[in-house]
Nucleic acid binder design. Structure first.
Lengths: 421, 421
DNA sequence: ACAGTTTCCCGTAAATGC
DNA sequence: TGCATTTACGGGAAACTG
């Protein structure tokens, strides 16, 4: 027999931005034996959270609603809160919310739902709450928030461990790599293959990468900067995810972007290939950049590798990546420019691979000569979450109480914000 | 003897966007004979405005402040309201704000300031109000708002004629052209010359343009679409102002943009010039576009004119206009591309004119080959305001009352919003 | 001074109202 | 349905705050 207290839709931790609307829904899983009045539900943010230590927020808009019979289903009571908005509580006295122990995206918050009704002269309190929530104030904090949500989901099944990031556990590389690949398959449609993951593992762990149960700390994953770089591993990876989502989706989903390849491997792969063979790789030195490297055979038999300055979102929004590949030209010594890109590694003729992805030429505004941009280089040398139900003080027989307690329970049905998947 | 009730800084009508902060300041021009308590000033938006007919707004934030002695000046009392924000009043009953007679940018509103104090047992009311204000809810309404402000300033000296656009007067072309030129000189630094204005006059008035006292209606200026175009004269002109402000300032201020030239005049000017002579002109068919036209002498002696598809803000933010001129290439029959732009009309060698304005090449990210965008065409044929002071009911001698009334007066000192000049 | 964080607000897109 | 207007909110930049 199923547990009536289990929610039907397991709830993932979410990210909520202050001042931006979100929605949530609670459902009472069983019919109440006798409720002849309207059942009011109240949502409270950061209920029971002691002030200090972390920031606190409150719900700006109306937070009380009456439950209704769900129209489509089994007649359960449910209520959906829409247009909820969060605002930070400001304390007049010097008390500061965030005390520097945790960054704001490591703070975990929660949304509580309460209702109270009387049956057989007894007052019953119902209460449930969401899985942990990360609250941000600007989209620039979204990557940090995502990192927290990923780490929490990966490493705990606890429904409400708000202190998780006080001492976050480590993840094994095998766990982490699966999650990273999942990020790409969820958001872009195409996950990461073994080679790509192995490059990422090496980047994060160095020589330990081969050992799949080597552990990665939370700090190394998303807080510490990569040595010599002004960003952390996750910030770098997330910038690439964003680049793919906005500018590279078709190319990525065709598997034409090798993406995560070290420069050494790149050279090994290209060196025996036809001149003009190229591959696409993400920049390791800059956030959200993609470049291509092609191989060239010089007159003296020497093999030479060239990489173009990485394209970032600004450039890609002026000119789609496939068109860049189609039109790219190198001018050596001011002579006839030539497109050095011939074969996508290993040996697919460029137009065969990218032909379908090329854009139409710009619309002809009639009296005008159409113009488009060309990229050119001047060659330098030529869960399921359990719920907590608060026990009422029972002035009824233990049997009666147990019966009620078993059947009455809030269910946080769904909750959405623009930042949920 | 000067009038104490005149404000020191005449107040121009302004545009305020709902939800966006603005600031205002009122000053009492003379010292009060005896005020031994704090003088509170209250601001009210749309005071005395009857509901219906136009939208109504209220000040979201605290609207009462106490006057202070001005620190720097003559010891007058003044008060500055900061962080004021407007929100529309919504009526539960069907009453709609804007009734369709006027568009929202034609509605004029006003901000009132009131204070009240007692002297010699008499209660004195002080009141003043701003010049008309246009309230918008989105920056997309800014051009419409500017049009209203310009027309109001041009055609009336009344301090508070909120019904102005109920029956707006016409402007003579000589008045209007002066204002238009002033827009360019204020916002861009360089006004319009006689030839440019004459093209604009012809565009707006047709053959009447020669007659400088020909009158232009408000509707023709900013409400009716230009025949055959989906935008009004002012919307078109304002889109060009914006383009100049954001992307063409240096080129505009060097006077290198002829800009407003009819195609006929353009041809007349270019036809006897050296091949490769070009001029820069704003698009008349699209909002916010600039193109160049160059003259070419064909083998058979025929003179040919070519214009490139106009560049809009999106393209110009990928590549600055001066660089477009430097790098522009036409490919005929897939042969060696050539830059057809040689001399800026009348005969300035291109690099001499634009050399200083060219951008540096993109920063060299060292292991990479720098790449930049090139605009390319494939040749198709290969071939000061008075104040109103409300009279108090006078239980004092007429002489006493007159004395006070003469010397006590609010002064709306300054008022600023992000949309004021 | 500075870094982490929030606020501000434009500009685009979507929603709303008539 | 289409147009006018408002709302929503991402994203860059400025302001804030210890």
């Amino acid at each position: 027999e199923k547990q009536p207290c289990m929610p039907t839709h397991p709830q993932k931790p979410l990210i909520i931005k202050t001042g931006v609307q979100f929605t949530t829904k609670v459902r009472l899983l069983v019919k109440l034996p006798e409720v002849d009045y309207q059942l009011k539900v109240k949502t409270t943010f950061d209920k029971d959270l002691p002030p200090g230590r972390v920031r606190q927020f409150f719900i700006l808009t109306n937070n009380t609603k009456v439950m209704d019979i769900e129209d489509y289903s089994n007649g359960c009571l449910s209520v959906e809160f829409r247009h909820l908005q969060l605002k930070e509580k400001k304390y007049i006295n010097g008390t500061k919310g965030n005390e520097g122990l945790l960054s704001v995206t490591e703070e975990l918050h929660s949304l509580s739902f309460e209702a109270c009704f009387t049956v057989q002269g007894l007052t019953i309190d119902l209460e449930t709450c969401s899985l942990p929530l990360v609250v941000i104030s600007n989209v620039s904090q979204l990557p940090g928030g995502w990192a927290s949500v990923m780490w929490y989901n990966l490493l705990t099944d606890e429904p409400r461990n708000l202190a998780f990031f006080g001492n976050p556990p480590r993840a094994t590389w095998s766990q982490l790599s699966e999650v990273l690949s999942w990020q790409f398959s969820t958001f872009a449609g195409q996950g990461l293959n073994k080679d790509q993951l192995s490059m990422l593992g090496e980047k994060l762990l160095g020589q330990h990468a081969s050992c799949s149960d080597y552990q990665v700390s939370w700090s190394k994953f998303s807080k510490e900067n990569i040595p010599g770089k002004p960003f952390s591993f996750w910030m770098w990876l997330d910038s690439i995810l964003e680049l793919i989502k906005k500018h590279l989706l078709p190319v990525w989903n065709e598997n034409y972007i090798m993406g995560f390849v070290s420069k050494e491997t790149e050279r090994t792969l290209l060196k025996d290939r036809e001149p003009g063979t190229f591959l696409l790789r993400f920049s390791e030195s800059h956030l959200g950049g993609i470049t291509f490297t092609w191989v060239e055979h010089k007159d003296n038999g020497e093999v030479k590798f060239n990489s173009v300055e990485p394209y970032t979102k600004n450039r890609l929004s002026a000119l789609p990546f496939a068109d860049i590949i189609r039109d790219y030209k190198v001018i050596s010594d001011g002579v006839v420019p030539e497109n050095p890109l011939k074969f996508l590694y290993p040996d697919i003729p460029k137009d065969e691979a990218f032909g379908r992805l090329y854009n139409c030429q710009p619309s002809k505004v009639h009296p005008y000569i159409p113009s488009h941009l060309i990229p050119i280089s001047v060659h330098p040398d030529a869960s399921s979450s359990p719920l907590s139900c608060r026990s009422p003080e029972p002035p009824m027989t233990p049997g009666e109480f147990n019966m009620l307690n078993e059947h009455l329970c809030f269910d946080l049905d769904t909750m959405s914000s623009p930042y949920s998947d």
